[in-house]
């Protein structure tokens, strides 16, 4: 464990909690892409199946359970409890254009052709593009609530910090996982445009435009 990975995980946890609390407190999921949240639930489910097969550490197990629990709770709030506030018209990204290529790629390029490993690879590839429906929805509505931008900032920051974690691990442990690194770079690049707008902050006053 290193400082980049720990702060990355905490940033990820913060993003998940921020979103869940925002929806719960405001009793509304306006401006939130339910499709992205479903993709994240799939990402955690397919990646953390090893909860059933191996124990790494209490931290690892607790975080995985929290991530999965919050992901499904968020999907439940969006599609069940507060479904009346779900903005389906603007959440129109064709996720099949993400899931199918990612599924095919995970069967073709992986570390080991075993079910668990292919599902892990699928999860890594899917996570790198899972935010696209959300970014697409914001570009269509032309605006994002402030709290939603904080959610996206923390979410984007987490994988950027993981990139530093992989540099650290390569240098100090000689460890590197090319699949996770390439997907992590793609995932972080997708946030660059958003990061620029978020940091310049100028756009807070007027609606966020991609």
């Amino acid at each position: 464990m290193n400082v980049f990975r720990l702060t990355g995980d905490l940033s990820h946890l913060a993003a998940i909690i921020i979103l869940l609390l925002k929806i719960w407190k405001s009793r509304s999921c306006a401006g939130i892409s339910g499709k992205s949240q479903i993709l994240f639930a799939i990402v955690f489910t397919t990646r953390y199946l090893d909860l059933l097969t191996s124990f790494i550490s209490l931290y690892n197990t607790c975080m995985k359970v929290i991530y999965i629990g919050c992901a499904y709770a968020t999907v439940y709030l969006i599609y069940a409890k507060f479904r009346a506030t779900y903005d389906g018209n603007h959440d129109s990204f064709r996720v099949e254009f993400l899931v199918v290529p990612v599924g095919g790629l995970s069967v073709l390029i992986n570390h080991d052709f075993s079910p668990l490993e292919i599902l892990w690879t699928f999860s890594i590839y899917l996570e790198s593009v899972a935010i696209l429906p959300q970014l697409f929805m914001i570009s269509k509505t032309g605006e994002a609530e402030t709290i939603t931008t904080h959610y996206l900032f923390c979410l984007g920051l987490y994988r950027a910090l993981y990139l530093f974690n992989w540099i650290w691990r390569f240098y100090f442990e000689g460890f590197f996982d090319m699949i996770a690194i390439v997907a992590g770079v793609v995932q972080t690049v997708l946030y660059c445009d958003f990061f620029y707008l978020y940091v310049t902050k100028g756009w807070f006053s007027r609606p966020y435009r991609l």
């Binding site: 990820h12 990646r47 090893d50 790494i56 975080m63 570390h111 080991d112 490993e117 892990w120």
Partner: peptide, 10 residues
């Protein structure tokens, strides 16, 4: 294939 170390990252 090299034996895959279990994925220890979240």
């Amino acid at each position: 294939d090299i034996e895959r170390a279990q994925h220890d990252e979240l």
